[in-house]
Computed example of a mutant assay.
Amino acid sequence: MERIEHRACFDGWQDVYRHESASLNCSMNFSVFLPALASRKKLPVLYWLSGLTCTEQNFTTKAGAQQYASRHGVIIVAPDTSPRGQQVADDMGYDLGKGAGFYVNATQKPWAAHYRMYDYVVTELPELIESEFPASEARSISGHSMGGHGAIVVALRNPGRYRSVSAFSPIVAPAQVPWGKKAFEAYLGPDRTAWRQYDACDLVRSAAEKLPLLVDQGAADEFLETQLKPHLLKASCEAVGHPLTLRLYPGFDHSYYFITTFIGNHIAFHAKALHG
């Protein structure tokens, strides 16, 4: 593991590391914010999953989350959104291939050789963080758009592993929208039964743990009706009594202006669960 960035930020350090990933069979970057309190004791970790076209840098440089993480004594870890490197399969579009890992374990060629972001997020990265940094085993997870999809799916599929989960503008029903259909067809193949393990609306119906879901959505989001469809998650949760807080904000779109406005609320929400 190599530290490639080290910057003072609020009362802590914003770093970026590169390491060789066994899950993804390539070099990967992740960012980690360490509050000053981490020099004295182990702290809980909030994992952030970013959306299409992003790297570990987008949330790190745009969201302004460090001030709240410092205030609440929470480490923030943000991985890249896909495997990287010349040997990694790619597509000419923005919504498949590099920058669009969709947090699944691909089973189809040529993607299966590297695209195992689910394993990376759930197992490999936390093991690395908890062994190399002053991190406790208290974890929460959040994300935006494709990353919001990833956060909810990971939390639903791993009962007891996360203290809390939230999302901004998540793709809640990828099996029913263009972004998800394109990715799942490529990564998982045409058999739609294989898609269900990565679809929040399907997973919530049989979730073993009723971990409350917090979802914030901009009402002026240009992808609201075509790609995101939060009403489908609401219907699935209501059908089985799964706790969901779905907040719709007039005027806000899909951008980081939305995230930076409300990220403090999300970190406070996670901090309460992580320190409780």
Results as ranks from 00 to 15, higher is better:
V172H: 00
S145H: 06
L244D: 10
N265I: 10
T81E: 00
P159Q: 10
A219T: 09
A89Q: 03
P134A: 02
R7Q: 09
Q197I: 03
S164A: 15
L125D: 09
L246T: 04
Q108V: 11
Y94W: 14
F262P: 02
V74D: 13
M28Y: 04
A38V: 06
C9T: 12
R163Y: 08
I75T: 11
V74Y: 05
V240K: 02
G143T: 06
L96F: 02
T107G: 10
G148Q: 04
S39C: 12
A89T: 10
A167E: 04
V154G: 03
S255W: 07
K62L: 14
Q87F: 13
Y47N: 05
A235M: 11
P230E: 05
A207K: 01
A273H: 07
E222T: 01
T245K: 11
Y118T: 04
S142D: 15
I171D: 04
V88L: 07
F269G: 13
R71T: 04
L46N: 02
Q66E: 13
P170T: 05
A8R: 13
D119E: 12
Q227G: 04
E222Y: 14
A207D: 07
R161S: 12
D216W: 03
V215E: 04
V77P: 08
L246D: 11
F10I: 00
I4H: 07
H149T: 08
L37V: 10
D90H: 06
E127S: 12
S21I: 02
K210H: 10
W179Y: 10
Y94I: 09
E2F: 09
A173M: 10
R163F: 12
R7D: 08
Q67P: 00
A135F: 06
W13I: 11
R161F: 05
Y187W: 07
A89H: 03
N265M: 07
L228T: 06
G150V: 00
D11F: 06
H149P: 07
G150E: 00
Q197N: 14
